[in-house]
Design a protein around this nucleic acid. Structure first.
Lengths: 110, 110
DNA sequence: CTTGAATTTAACTGATAGGTTATTTAACTA
DNA sequence: TAGTTAAATAACCTATCAGTTAAATTCAAG
């Protein structure tokens, strides 16, 4: 499983996106992250593990507490794949290509 | 399941990302899409259904063939969620915030 | 109206995901 | 050394996913 697989899989879960939103406000411990969610600690723990393995967050230990932070690296690479195709679905170039495809000059083979 | 869930879940699969890459080159029928892949027709059919339900592609029927195209709308909305957080993990603002979090002015409660 | 081609649907299988509760690990504190 | 707190791991359950092969659908063409 490559890094994009894990990144997008991680983003597919709304709880994990909410955790990322929380972390965009600033670092937090596991307990602080878990607090607003109606699910068990272990469930949060595994969500965090998924985010960490997807390189979307990093963890540092401070005593018994684990501090989580967003990881710019992983987030950026998740974005790059989509960015690569941005040209195809924004602006005039996209509409032109689409138009040409839908209306071929000659009704040739296809 | 909201639209972001399905979009990111769709993007998590490498076969489906490859299909999107193919469609970035231009529209294609199911058969044309399936051709380079070593998996069965039904498997491709279901990948396409997933992409369609995630609004990442659109389908039009032309006789017995189904023609698939990228759907700018869905792709854009998938990108917007990440875009919203871009400021948090790029540039100086990010580094500043991170620095402040790691080095609080006063060693207060926490 | 039968045949053939493009595609989907059905039925099944093995693996993975997300949740639970109970147990364990690790670090702080009296 | 206990006891307490923060978090992870284990064991388990159910649902969903990605693949398969076989059957059904849909449309075009004789």
């Amino acid at each position: 499983m490559n890094s994009l697989d894990t990144a997008y899989a991680a983003l597919a879960d709304p709880t994990r996106r909410a955790i990322l939103s929380r972390l965009a406000l600033g670092q937090a411990t596991v307990g602080e992250i878990a607090e607003p969610f109606p699910i068990s600690g272990p469930a949060i723990s595994r969500h965090l593990k998924v985010l960490e393995e997807a390189r979307l967050v990093t963890r540092t230990r401070r005593g018994q507490s684990h501090v989580l932070r967003l990881n710019p690296e992983g987030l950026r690479s998740a974005q790059e794949w989509l960015d690569h195709y941005r040209a195809f679905w924004t602006g005039a170039l996209d509409r032109l290509a689409d138009h040409l495809e839908r209306n071929p000059h000659k009704p040739g083979k296809e």
